[in-house]
Computed example of a mutant assay.
Amino acid sequence: MPSEITPAGLRERKKEETRRLLLEGAARLFGERGFEGTTVADVAAYANVSVRTFFRYFESKEALLLPDGVEIFAYVENALSERPADEAPLDAVCNALLAAAEPFSASTLTALSHPLEDIENVVTTRLVQAFSDFEERLTVLVQRRLPPDTPDADLKAAVIACAALSAVRAVLRTRRARRASGIADTGTAPLVRAFGILHEIGTLEQGA
């Protein structure tokens, strides 16, 4: 006997589908027309909803450039849970952040095919705020990966989580400065390098 879906469940599915279509439409239209050449009405029309409905899901056109902090953290949390249990905590966090950053980097770079300084300010601000908001939550996840007898486990977990997220923030600021100078800097390669620098610092400290 097929399971019945309640009206509340149908409404939630409809909301999720509308949000997905709005994001899908934004990605496609930004890529075809550029951010500046796409209006809220264009995105709403793609999802077959009204402009008024659009603003029930997103506060502005700029908000379409990145998902909210909850969604970003969900990507990180899922990626971290898939890392090998015996992987070093810093490696696990860095690899999880890299895996989570890829879809967001791709969609943002598509939208910014014609980079504009004010848009990049919005993107950088939203990402930095999102990462800052879940430093404590990431710290908890890191601590769960540490052996139970780890000395100062709470402190070690906090340092690992905050160091990794600080590297992400450093990449965002550096990328923005490089673009302003006309230097090409795309994809997740700068993030890979930033995490490499973290490991280099750790190696230097160990050798001191």
Rank of each mutant, 00 (worst) to 15 (best):
L155K: 08
N48I: 03
L97P: 04
V43T: 05
L80F: 10
R145F: 00
C94R: 02
V142L: 11
D86R: 07
T139P: 01
S60W: 10
R52K: 09
I197G: 06
P7W: 03
P151Q: 03
F195I: 00
V76D: 07
V159Q: 08
L191A: 07
G9W: 07
I197C: 05
P7L: 13
L109N: 08
Y46N: 01
L109S: 13
L191G: 06
S181L: 15
D118H: 04
F58A: 13
P103H: 07
A74G: 11
E102F: 15
T110D: 08
L204H: 09
G202N: 05
L138C: 06
L155V: 03
A106I: 08
S107A: 10
V49S: 10
T38P: 01
G69V: 07
S60L: 02
D68E: 05
A99C: 10
T53L: 07
A194D: 02
E17Y: 06
L191I: 11
P2V: 07
D91W: 03
T139F: 02
E24W: 01
R179V: 15
L98K: 02
R19C: 00
I119E: 04
V142Q: 06
C94P: 13
A184P: 15
L64E: 14
M1G: 06
G196M: 10
R137W: 00
V171D: 09
E117L: 05
S105F: 14
P2F: 04
G207C: 07
L155A: 07
V128M: 10
R178P: 04
E117N: 05
R19W: 00
H199A: 11
I201Y: 08
Q129C: 06
A99V: 08
A208K: 03
L146G: 01
T108F: 14
G207W: 09
K14N: 14
E120Q: 14
S132G: 12
A101V: 04
Y57S: 11
D149P: 05
A85G: 02
R178W: 09
A100Y: 02
E102R: 15
A158V: 00
V49M: 05
K156P: 00
A47G: 08
V123E: 00
P103I: 03
A41S: 12
E62S: 11
E12T: 10
L98R: 01
N95D: 14
E71A: 12
T188N: 12
D152Y: 15
A88E: 15
A63G: 08
A26T: 09
R169D: 13
D86G: 03
L23W: 01
